[in-house]
Design a protein around this nucleic acid. Structure first.
Ligand SMILES: Nc1ncnc2c1ncn2[C@@H]1O[C@H](COP(=O)(O)OP(=O)(O)OP(=O)(O)O)[C@@H](O)[C@H]1O
Length: 664
DNA sequence: ACGGCTTCGACGGGT
DNA sequence: TCGAAGCCGT
């Protein structure tokens, strides 16, 4: 590697980058340059003769994967079309596309996201009649657990198991997979077809995993089996930052790694390049309260520190206003850009009052996470059309749009065709198609015509959309044909709303166009596009953040860093979350880790707010500050002091001064 | 079948 | 507080 590149690493990082044989485990605290190790290790491999397709790198999010690829491109100057840097899920899609037929899936399989999964479960429940557990969310979680634990399904009610089997059977019939399948099916494939496994084992000489503390059992099994004969397997992570246990993450995998990969070289990184000493020490003191952890040393390389600021606004409206005001002040004072600021919160809905304050103040911002562009009603409608074009067996998405825009097909008709399709063991789409030839007598003429017109339209556009670089134009013509604009006008009383929604659809068309004309997309197709956006729950454009304050949950801030970080809603019941407290001790420790992750996102400044009252489900409630604040030594923080020329509530001021005195 | 009106339940995190 | 589901009249 070019000499000056290796100079950007400290001694331990350098070792982690250049030792190319055997298993390697880098467990180190926040901001110690772990992600940098992965990035430079890949660059080093490429510059030492390893081919792009001999490397498999796994990251936690698609965005992290894209950014890492870009960094490597910059370092090496290479075109990286054959390098795999992806999430476990995207990797799973790749495998299933190639070999899914061996497990009985067609190439055009659909990937069901959470809403799809929910509607499938609701359909099953509607068909079942009364059952003991009819909560969709609960069942969805159970199904995940049953699927991913594989073994001990005895713990579940026979009824739940029966529903689960129906769920699985329906997925298969619809030629669809859920997110869990994207990990589990490749593993099944590799276990059942040793020759295919060998193919990949031989191919991937070097495997790298970032954020290893948040891999699940099944993901780890996949790494174990793939890495059995690799030259190196390099796992990088921090047990103190494991915050996804509710999704099956198991930081015990760190211990398992040392056990399963004989002769693991363990490297510690103890320099923190990100945060000031005050921020880092506060975080270190907090996380010390956890008992289940690998203790580690972490020293800041910085010397200057500002204290952490705590502010206790009256309510969530004033919290947002204070944050906006502070951003304006700090922006000028420290010559920062809007994107140097982030506001982190525990739950998605907490962003709302902050967003409103930013809007009032004309502060540019971007909310990441939450309801993404692709979750909007109008976008989902169009995407359902695309999904049916791609996979006609997908009953869930077919039923979503069979009467959108309204074409006179109501609940009665739907019930009739669904039952009929079920009885014949064919998809609803096939059943409607077959009505062209027989079984017409069951339907009114008007409805029959409508049904046949529907599938004829889809057949027509399916043929069109398969041609190279014709996705966007086909979709545009289809939207016009079904008169979606007219539908928007009748559905939305305000013409402005309809126009805004139509604009969104135009943005979707542009995103499709960008996708199909991007020369880096070697195999652009409707299938590939749909898979991609299903895995990209969040917005894709990487530059969208520029010049905007970032608003997000702590979970989605993992791995990121900002000059100045606000943590809003530092309240009891939020961190730790009330619903986490009812769980056991381990979950409380995870809540502490969550705050640890939040604190360690900040490079130079950290400000935290805790409201005195907050509106919850319409009701105003009194709030207490998070008990975790007491675990941070007082020498690291101070309460915000209103400026003299501002007419703050003097009793509040008094209270804060008093409180500060008492605490010291 | 459809649109308007009322009532109900959600607000833990996300690939 | 809000959107989805449920109810009712046309
Ligand atoms: N050797 C180094 N010298 C100077 N800066 C470094 C060095 N290594 C990493 N950094 C910088 O430190 C910051 C944190 O690095 P990185 O994101 O790789 O840490 P991390 O361990 O992955 O953090 P986290 O666990 O919080 O995700 C980045 O801004 C990075 O550019």
């Amino acid at each position: 590697m070019k000499h000056n590149n290796l100079l950007l690493l400290n001694k331990e990082q350098l070792k982690s980058v250049t030792v190319l044989d055997g298993p390697l485990l880098v467990i180190a605290g926040a901001g110690s340059g772990k992600t940098r190790v992965i990035t430079y290790r890949i660059a080093f491999l490429l510059e030492n003769g390893y081919k792009q397709n001999e490397i498999l790198a796994v990251t936690f999010t698609n965005k992290a994967a894209m950014e890492m690829k870009q960094r490597i491109k910059k370092i090496t100057g290479l075109n990286l079309r054959l390098l795999t840097v992806s999430t476990f899920h995207a990797f799973g899609v790749k495998i299933l596309k190639k070999h899914g037929h061996l497990l009985g899936y067609k190439k055009n399989f659909s990937i069901y996201d959470q809403p799809d999964k929910d509607s499938l479960i609701k359909d099953i429940l509607a068909d079942e009649g009364p059952v003991k557990i009819d909560n969709t969310q609960l069942l969805s979680n159970f199904f995940s657990k049953i699927k991913m634990n594989q073994a001990n399904s005895e713990d579940y009610e026979p009824e739940v198991l029966r529903l689960y089997h129906r769920y699985q059977a329906n997925l298969k019939a619809y030629n669809a997979v859920d997110f869990d399948d994207l990990i589990l099916l490749p593993l099944k494939l590799f276990s059942s077809y040793p020759d295919i496994l060998k193919l990949y084992q031989d191919q991937y000489r070097h495997i790298l995993i970032d954020e290893f503390q948040d891999t699940s059992e099944v993901q780890y099994k996949l790494i174990k089996i793939l890495g059995r004969t690799a030259n190196s397997v390099c796992a990088v992570g921090d047990d103190d930052q494991s915050i996804y246990s509710w999704r099956g993450a198991n930081f015990g995998n760190i211990m398992n790694f040392q056990r399963d990969f004989r002769g693991t070289l363990e490297i510690k990184l103890e320099q923190n390049y990100r945060s000031t000493p005050v921020i880092l020490n506060a975080a270190n003191e907090l996380i010390k309260k956890n008992s289940k952890r690998k203790g580690k040393t972490l020293r800041s390389v910085k010397d200057e520190s500002e204290p952490i600021i705590i502010h206790m606004p009256q309510n969530e409206r004033m919290e947002g206003e204070w944050i906006a005001e502070m951003i304006r002040t700090l922006l000028v004072k420290h010559n920062l850009k809007y994107h140097d600021f982030a506001v982190l919160v525990r739950t998605n809905h907490l962003t709302k009052p902050i967003e409103e304050a930013f809007l009032r103040d004309n502060l540019p911002y971007k909310v990441s996470g939450g309801i993404s562009f692709f979750q909007r009603r109008e976008i989902k409608d169009i995407l359902s059309y695309l999904k049916i074009l791609a996979n006609p067996d997908d009953n869930i998405n077919l039923l979503r749009i069979i009467n959108v825009p309204r074409r006179g097909i109501g609940l009665k008709t739907i019930e009739k065709i669904a039952n009929s399709a079920d009885a014949k063991g064919i998809s609803i789409y096939s059943l409607i198609s077959s009505l062209r030839f027989g079984g017409k007598d069951k339907f009114e003429k008007k409805i029959l015509d409508s049904l046949i017109e529907f599938v004829t339209l889809l057949d027509y556009y399916r043929e069109k959309i398969m041609h190279p670089k014709k996705i966007a134009v086909t979709v545009k013509s289809m939207i016009e044909k079904i008169n979606y604009w007219g539908y928007l006008l009748t559905e939305n009383k305000k013409k402005q709303v309809a126009q805004w929604k139509y604009q969104n659809i135009m943005s979707l068309l542009n995103s499709i166009k960008d996708y199909e004309y991007d020369p880096d997309n070697l195999s652009a197709s409707i299938y590939d596009y749909l898979n991609r956006i299903t895995l990209n729950t969040k917005d894709e454009q990487p530059d969208m953040e520029k010049g905007k304050v970032q608003l997000m949950t702590i979970h989605s801030a993992k791995g990121l860093e900002f000059d100045t970080v606000f943590i809003a809603g530092l309240e009891e019941g939020l961190i730790p979350h009330a619903r986490a407290l009812s769980d056991d001790e381990r979950i409380l420790e995870e809540e502490r880790r969550l705050l640890y992750v939040a604190l360690t996102r900040a490079k130079n400044r950290l400000l935290m707010t805790s409201c005195k009252t907050r509106r919850k489900m319409g009701q105003i409630e009194d709030c207490n500050v998070s008990p975790f604040l007491e675990e941070i030594p007082e020498r690291f923080y101070e309460y915000y002091k209103e400026k003299d020329d501002e007419q703050g509530d003097s009793s509040v001021d008094f209270f804060e001064k008093f409180r500060k005195k008492v605490l010291q």
